[in-house]
Computed example of a mutant assay.
Amino acid sequence: MEEVRQSRRDGGITALVEGFFGAAWFGWGHAAPPAWLDPWLTVGSVAALLVAVAGAVVGFASAASTAAINNRAAGRRYGIIVGVEFALAGLGAALLGALGQPDYIPVWICAVVGVHFLPLAPVLRDRNLIPLGILVSATAAVALVGGLTTDVVPSTITGVGAGLSLSVFGAYALIGALRQPRRRPEAA
């Protein structure tokens, strides 16, 4: 069976999305970090944004027809997975807020984000989403335990763990995209 690889466009867009959300997680980590960590979160955010910008340049300069979700069925599956992710994240966050546990909202969202990568892997033709999903989910577990047993707020743990995981995997996707040959759009 022939291995299906990500296109240059897919790799660039993956770097864009993972870099952007890596920066967002580093930003969330700024909620109440120890003073020594604050500048490192800023460095992480800037690095993640650089990955996102480079990913956008590579992705949008590549043929759209090569994208994994270029066909209707893949686009529909992608939309369903992301829609369920947003619904679960929002409902859980609302419930945690209503229960007076807002410090655990980042833990819940991190867990949902981590799990959502698993069904996205085949849709986006990206096997790297599986270890990324495992790492982000593990970050949520560590943040839960850390929040319950230490003085470190969960957003600090999720900010560092998810931010770093997304940024590193985004950079890896960008490198993979740059190694892919440029393809011309298919004629209609």
Rank of each mutant, 00 (worst) to 15 (best):
L178W: 11
L166R: 05
V84H: 02
L124F: 04
A94R: 10
E3G: 04
Y78A: 12
Q6L: 12
G11V: 02
G161I: 06
A24S: 11
L166S: 11
I81T: 15
T66H: 07
A63N: 08
G27F: 03
S62N: 05
R8Q: 13
L95G: 10
L16S: 10
H116V: 08
R184T: 12
G90V: 12
V145M: 07
P185T: 14
D126C: 07
R9Y: 03
G83H: 03
W40D: 10
A111I: 05
G170F: 03
P122R: 04
D151S: 11
T139Q: 04
L49N: 10
R183H: 07
V17E: 13
A94M: 15
S65A: 14
V136L: 09
E2K: 11
R76W: 06
L148T: 08
A140P: 13
G55V: 04
V152P: 08
P122A: 08
L120D: 07
V153I: 01
A68M: 12
L164I: 08
A177W: 00
I69Q: 12
P119L: 06
G161V: 06
P119T: 02
A171I: 00
R183T: 11
P185N: 13
F117K: 02
D10Q: 12
Q180S: 07
P181Y: 00
G146C: 03
T66W: 00
R76M: 12
A188L: 12
E85F: 05
N70W: 01
Y104S: 06
P102H: 06
Y172F: 11
L118A: 08
G133R: 04
A140Q: 04
N128H: 01
L148H: 04
G12C: 08
T66R: 10
A98I: 05
R184Q: 10
V153K: 11
V82F: 07
G83N: 11
G97Q: 12
V136H: 05
G146Q: 14
F20W: 06
A187M: 10
L88W: 06
E18A: 14
V43W: 09
L118T: 05
G133H: 01
G97E: 09
S165Q: 13
V113W: 08
G92N: 07
A87W: 05
G114N: 09
G133Y: 00
F117H: 14
V142Q: 09
W36V: 10
M1E: 15
L50M: 10
A111P: 06
I109V: 13
L50C: 15
T150H: 07
R72W: 07
L129P: 04
F117D: 14
F26R: 10
N71P: 03
A171W: 07
A187C: 03
V46D: 12
A68D: 11
D38N: 14
L49E: 13
V43C: 09
R127E: 12
G11L: 03
F21L: 13
I105C: 00
L120W: 03
V17I: 14
E2P: 14
V17D: 04
A173I: 11
V145A: 15
I130Q: 13
A73D: 15
G19Y: 01
T158E: 09
D38I: 06
R5P: 01
L95N: 06
A121Y: 02
R72C: 02
D126L: 02
L148Q: 09
V160A: 08
I105A: 10
V58N: 08
S137H: 00
P185S: 14
A24Y: 05
S137R: 00
G146D: 14
I175P: 00
L118W: 09
